[in-house]
Every structure is written in C-alpha cells, then in structure tokens.
Computed example of a mutant assay.
Amino acid sequence: MLQLANTLDKVNLGVAYVVRWLALAMMLVQFTIVVGRYAFGLNSIALQESVLYMHATLFMLAAGYTLLVDKHVRVDVFYAKVSAAAQRRIDIFGHLFLLMPSMIALIYWSWPSVRNSWAIFEGPISVGGIEAVFLLKSLIPVFAVLVILQSLALLIRLLAVKVP
C-alpha cells in the first residue's frame, strides 16, 4: 500500500514540477504588460488574461503538492496541543469526512458547468481575450482529483503507521 501512496505522490510531484514554471512566466508576462503599457502605450487584453490563466493553473494544479508537503492552511487551535495519536485521528477524520467529501462535491457540482463550457467551447471573459474559458473551468475538477489523490496517499500512510 505504501508503494501506491508513493505513486500517488509522484503524480502531484510531477504536476508541481511542470506548473512551478508558471510563476516565472507570470512574472515575465506581467512585466511585459507593464512595460508595454507605460513605456510604449500598448495594451493587450489577451496578454492580461494570460496572467489570470497562469495564476489559476498554478494555484489549482499545485494544491495537491501543497497538501503533500504539508504547507496547506491548517486551523490548529487544538491540533498542536494534542498527542501524535490524537493528531493522527484528527488527520484521518479530516481526510475521510471533510476533505474527500468536499472534493467529491466540488467535482459533482462543477461538472455540469465544465461540460456545458466544453460543449460550446466557451469564449473569452473579455472582448479580445483568450478564447479558452472551457480550459479554465476544466481546472476545477482536475484540482479536486489531484487533491483527492494526495489525500488518499496521506490517508494510506496514516493508516499504515502503528501508533501506540
């Protein structure tokens, strides 16, 4: 089972390895937009939207990796003050009854919008923008699947550890 958890980790590690470059690309594109606008009086709605697309892609696809490296937001009012065994029980409960059901609900409720967007190849957000809103909306279920996979990997490890 731990081999399955390691394989699931590799999915999010691979995705993070690819999308991390979007942070650099976003910075360079945003710099180009600012220089173009203020130095040359040029403006491009599509270029501005590309920053939005890159930011959304980076945020949504790196969420599973963030969970993997334990850098997600944790409300640890009680968590930090309890024993390792209690932390393990809290984590198991959180994965099984909070995180996974939330992600499944997100897939369920977002899927009709994603499907409809693909059916019409939904166009740009703004006039002159990128004609690929259907790709942007597709990030929602992909995000949920990546988080579910990482949650499953963490859950396997939690259940494999024997705590006295």
Rank of each mutant, 00 (worst) to 15 (best):
M1I: 10
L2G: 11
A5Y: 09
D9N: 07
Y17V: 07
V19D: 00
M27P: 01
Q30W: 12
T32Q: 13
I33P: 00
G36C: 02
Y38W: 11
Y38Q: 05
Y38T: 03
G41I: 10
L42P: 00
L42R: 12
Q48I: 14
V51G: 00
Y53W: 11
M54V: 05
T57V: 03
L58Q: 10
F59T: 05
M60A: 04
M60C: 01
A63Y: 04
G64T: 05
T66M: 07
D70E: 14
D70I: 01
K71G: 15
D76K: 09
F78W: 11
F78E: 09
A86P: 00
Q87L: 13
R88T: 08
G94V: 10
F97T: 06
P101F: 13
S102N: 14
I104Y: 00
I107F: 08
Y108T: 15
W111H: 08
S117A: 12
S117T: 06
W118T: 06
E122N: 03
I125W: 13
V127T: 14
G128A: 08
A132W: 01
L135A: 10
K137Y: 14
P141R: 07
P141K: 08
V142P: 06
F143T: 08
F143D: 03
F143W: 12
A144W: 01
V145T: 08
L146K: 06
L152G: 07
L154C: 06
L159H: 02
L159I: 11
V163K: 13
